[in-house]
Amino acid sequence: MNIFRFLGDLSHLASIFILLHKIQTTRSCRGISFRTQALYVVVFIARYLDLFFRYVSLYNSAMKLFFIASSCYILYLMKIRYRPTHDPSIDTFRVEYLLAPCLILALIFNYKFNFAEVLWSFSIWLEAVAILPQLFMLQRTGEAENITTHYLAALGAYRALYIPNWIYRYFTEGLVDPIAVTAGIVQTGLYLDFFYVYFTKVLQGQKFELPA
């Protein structure tokens, strides 16, 4: 564990707490893509099934359980508790266009051709693009509540912080994980436009609005 990965994980945790806080305090999931949240459930279950056969550390297991449980809870909040506040008519990104290519990438790029490893690779690629329905929705509405942008910023920062972690691990442990690194760079890249608007508008006290 190094400081970059730890801060990345904290940022990921923070993003979930911000999202839960947004839903609970506004009693609404307006502006949040159900499709993106559902993809995260798929990502976490696919990747963290290794809880059953791989033990890394208490920290690792606790985080995995938290990410699975919290992502399922968010789906429950969106689909049942605050269902009327979710507007499916603006959440229309076709997730098949993400799932199928990720499955193909996982079949081609994996560390071993077995079920667990292909599933792991699939979850890594899917995580990289799971934010697209949310960003697509943001693009369509052209604006977002401040709290939603803080959620997205924390979520984007999480994988961005893994990049210096991988550089650090390469130099200290000689360790390279080409699949995670490639997908992580793609994932961070998808946030660049968002980060630009977040830093130049939201953090300057303005509302998050995209140019028409």
């Binding site: 990965r5 994980d9 990921h12 290794d50 791989r54 890394v56 550390s57 690792n60 985080m63 995995k64 990410f67 560390y111 792991w120 893994y162 972690n165 360790l175 390279v176 994980d177 080409p178 699949i179 995670a180």
Partner: peptide
Amino acid sequence: GNVVVQHDEL
């Protein structure tokens, strides 16, 4: 050598 990835990250 072989790529040995430990999957010790989240």
